[in-house]
Amino acid sequence: MLEYVVSKFNFWTYVILVGIGLYAMIGKKNLVKKLIGMNIMQSAVILFYVSIGAKKGGATVPIFMGDAHAAHGHGIHEIIDVASYVNPLPHVLMLTAIVVSIATTGVALAALILIFRRYKTLNEDEILKIRREAGV
């Protein structure tokens, strides 16, 4: 049991980080804190995907290490050992996810500045109180 927990600690980190991010989005009252929680959750999901592609036992980045010149010149194709390279497909997907997450953060921060200009506070309870008193 202990060995199983230790050998999968990337996934345990993912579980703990999603918990922390979810708690920050639900439990914290400040809007910037909620946004920080959203960022933590996004990078936790990215960590999960990259961990799927990773391999143990000396697997490296997917760049062909063999003698490419000889193989090209004589039409000899070396057998590529798939176990020595990590899977690059999750990496490519997660590159897009990082850029999208920064765009989401930018839009959220712009909305946050507008909320602050209107209500003069970033606390969720105070904003709801002001809205209730105004009768909205």
Binding site: N10, V32, N39, S43, T60, I98
Partner: peptide, 30 residues
């Protein structure tokens, strides 16, 4: 984990640009 492309995108976009945007927003609010 061998994901160097994800790593340098995160270092430049996630840590760099993200922190700058957050600091600018905190500067304009409380």
């Amino acid at each position: 984990m061998g994901a160097v492309d994800v790593a340098f995108t995160e270092a430049s976009v996630g840590a760099g640009v993200g922190t700058v945007l957050f600091i600018a927003a905190v500067n304009r609010t409380k």
